[in-house]
Amino acid sequence: MESKGERFPVWAVDLRSASIIETPEKLAPLLGDFHDDPDMRPIVAMFLGELPKRVRDFEAAFETSDLPLFRRLTHQMKGAAGGYGYPSITQAAITLERCVDMSGDTWTRTCRVHLDALVLLLRRAHAAAALLPH
């Protein structure tokens, strides 16, 4: 099931240009299922606020080939994102985790594309933080 707030398809953004230094303004914000839920708002805001750090953690673990850490980060994102209203992020993390589990020595090449897809969604979700109702 896709997020009700996901107004733009993932492929609307060129994956090759999606580097982590790109400014959020260029990305289509990804609104979560609980965007308007007053009970969830405080922790959704916290979740979105922490996404840049999580993106940096993913990238650092990938660059240093810290597979256990990379796997843990992916697994945590898979388990949590859906609960915060972002099933598409959970889905991307499932794909990435499967890739890591199956890749063996070639995981860096194969998984880079899936990591980029996940990072893009994380950054689009982060871009929606400013749109949360006060």
Binding site: Q76, A80, G83
Partner: peptide, 12 residues
């Protein structure tokens, strides 16, 4: 081991 899950459980 995920702080994200603990926060979620607190609210839910």
């Amino acid at each position: 081991d995920s702080e994200l899950i603990h926060r979620l459980l607190q609210v839910r």
